[in-house]
Design a binder for these strands. Structure first.
Lengths: 210, 210
DNA sequence: AATAAAATACCTGAATTCAGGTAGATAATA
DNA sequence: TATTATCTACCTGAATTCAGGTATTTTATT
């Protein structure tokens, strides 16, 4: 029996997968986690054959969660699941130990094929995702498009900047020296390779960091 | 019997709704359309009690489709369905004759409640969506929320700013004195009543000016 | 306990933005 | 044609941002 853990905060998605699998013999949804914390708890005592992991979760992001899962669990096959068809996310996810990638506009047949493939030890990318990845490899570099890992504080700053606060305002709000705020901002700009706060926010939005 | 038409290009969503409704007596999904064209075709020969309409469709947008449906069909109750919790879209949709609005992160209970309410002739807004709308209506005045009229040049500047260009870059691109650019920027900030370019862009985005 | 990563803070000089003006030229409209 | 709106350009001083550093303290991680 292939037991599946779904990690997704949308009941709609979990339900949709349930419907897609209802006539598939030997495959069943055994656990549903609505966030990263729940997922970790479940994986503490169970070993699903397949983990369907939504990349955009409320409490953490799927990339980090994938990495975290792989530390203790090499057994389960992880299939990423999002609506964003972004090559840089896909490649990163695969680097972090995922076995496949599905877009949320998938058909039933794709889901079944993906499960089949990864259980067979192969990697599955949904058709559209596959194209994106190939496109990326042919178009110059992966370095430019990879999402840099931001620290907690940096994400916080990024959010406040995107809320429209300026340096001094953020410093006041977080009880920090304005020097510190500028340092964080500088590091953010360096990581995203931009030269102004406005570009920082633009790129961050494009990479779905905010 | 309450017959439902789902208009959504994601089989996952349709399946999810199916799962949510599977134990609900007297309610059934009768038709599924993957795009606007299919929906129109179906509505040519059927009258669903409920139409669940995804706002983001491949061939048309849900707002237009809603309007189109209402021309010939006053009977069906239309419930908008998206993942974006955006007050302006919600109000627009309701103006176009929709009877409700659900977010895709809804729970089963919300879906059932929504169906119940609209069948009863009422309007249903999902909890989170409701807050947004109230927020919009209550936030002081319509004056603040009213969209100021921008001149052609101002719109152009706004776009370039949102593309990440700074003052001097815009001046160079448009062959203008940087003084002129700053004047336009100043006027924009005054019209939108903000004190920094970042806030300008934030508000402009919220008002869908860019 | 040692090392590495993250958070904090500081400095300087140059560039850019912001606030509060004025004002002439051009285009649109009544 | 007179009026109004728009586009253009200029000025100044203060505030903020940016670039390129250094450096100490906290907080994980091994």
């Amino acid at each position: 029996m292939i037991n599946i853990l779904i990690i997704d905060d949308h009941p709609l998605v979990a339900g949709g997968i349930e419907t897609m699998l209802k006539d598939a013999a030997g495959i069943q949804i055994q656990w549903i986690a609505k966030n990263g914390a729940e997922a970790i708890a479940i994986l503490g005592k169970a070993e699903p054959e397949i983990i369907l992991l939504d990349i955009s979760l409320p409490d953490t992001d799927g990339l980090q969660l994938c990495e975290k899962i792989r530390v203790t669990n090499k057994y389960s096959k992880i299939i990423g699941l999002t609506s964003a068809n972004d090559a840089s996310i896909i490649t990163q996810l695969l680097h972090l130990g995922a076995n496949g990638y599905l877009l949320k506009n998938m058909e039933r047949s794709e889901l079944l094929e993906a499960i089949d493939k990864v259980m067979d030890g192969k990697v599955y990318l949904s058709k559209a995702a596959n194209e994106k990845v190939l496109e990326q490899f042919s178009s110059i570099s992966s370095a430019i498009n990879s999402i840099p890992s931001l620290t907690r504080r940096e994400k916080e700053l990024l959010q406040l900047l995107s809320d429209g606060l300026n340096g001094p305002q953020i410093a006041a709000k977080l009880f920090l020296s304005h020097y510190t705020v500028e340092t964080h901002r500088k590091n953010l700009m360096q990581k995203l390779n931009v030269s102004s706060t406005q570009l920082l926010l633009k790129i961050a939005r494009e990479k779905k960091l905010i």
